[in-house]
Design a protein around this nucleic acid. Sequence first.
DNA 1: GTCATTATTGACATCCATGTCAACAATCAT
DNA 2: ATGATTGTTGACATGGATGTCAATAATGAC
Lengths: 196, 196
Amino acid sequence: MAGVRQFDEDTMLEDALALFWSQGVAATSMVDLANATGVQRGSLYNAYGDREAIFLRAYDRYAGRFLASARASLEGDDAGQMLRRFFEAVITSMFAGETARGCLTTRTAGDGSLARQPIRARIRQMLDDLTAIVTEALARPGVREQLGLEPARAAELVVTFTRGLAVMERVYGDRAALLRGANSLISAIAPHAKRA
Amino acid sequence: MAGVRQFDEDTMLEDALALFWSQGVAATSMVDLANATGVQRGSLYNAYGDREAIFLRAYDRYAGRFLASARASLEGDDAGQMLRRFFEAVITSMFAGETARGCLTTRTAGDGSLARQPIRARIRQMLDDLTAIVTEALARPGVREQLGLEPARAAELVVTFTRGLAVMERVYGDRAALLRGANSLISAIAPHAKRA
DNA sequence: GTCATTATTGACATCCATGTCAACAATCAT
DNA sequence: ATGATTGTTGACATGGATGTCAATAATGAC
């Protein structure tokens, strides 16, 4: 068979994302991708050019979902509650799937993949967007007053801390410890919020 | 020449450490090591067995110095001051050297190298030690009272946050932003400390 | 129905990394 | 001084990854 694309792009990108996420970008070869997606290596080269292009497409899906989930978790007007939901969502995402996969963004950042300019740009964009989302949430009237710092500073803190959690997940793989850490951060930045 | 070791182990390990630190473990091959150290590849295999063994020795030097520097920065009895010195030391270490090298521990953790059990053990040990050092410092009489949380919780927070800073360094490479983040964390966890 | 277009497939060339080995040469103990 | 020991050196075998290409076959436009 030939002449028309034999694989479903959507399915193939989902499979690719799952693989990148579970193995890390750097450790995933075109052969791995071909096996995992059921699409011949040559077809992948023909359709996308190289591994990086496939990764970028898969990552866009990931980032879109991650940001949507962050946005959703940050609804409301109670700082403590929204941050608890936010960290809960972030941590749950790390432990979803067969094996703990951690945070794709952080894994990719630690991978050596940042040397590739397009990848670096996506990662930055994703973190910039995340920071904007958290800042907006923390700047809401009613929330802002519960914080011990400016919303923008608190948001930077939260975003940086999620990166730290992602690293700790890799090293220790201890979900409970991550949740404990998140709760510590919450009580440090939102001392005036209601407790859980 | 043969019969007796032709290279100085100390010099070679320093060169190896510098290379691992600047390139990352996963991206450093035995050929790279041979070039950077001036020691033949065969000699390295003969003396150490494999790349991992060389890395572990180099990492031990790194970790020893890192912990010593952390310990030294945490002297005194003012929470704000000690934490400012601590983060200053951590961040300075990331930007020392020709090119910004970041944090070797975090880079290695994000590398895929954690799959190797001995490497994972060292990384954990190093983070455990760091947590213990910070906990001890924050539990000192006079310091403890300045914190909004238990010393052990605050120490976990600080250690996790340093990992987050290391990731942000990789992505943005912005020293000032890291310092700003560190200051935000300090004011969040030590609200009763004197300001800078 | 014919033909240009396009995806598929397997082969191929290339490169780079790892780890091993045998030959060699210098040192040290006796 | 002699010989066992041991580090050095370059070669070799192997494996895996990348990217390219020509042959093939099916589709869709005219």
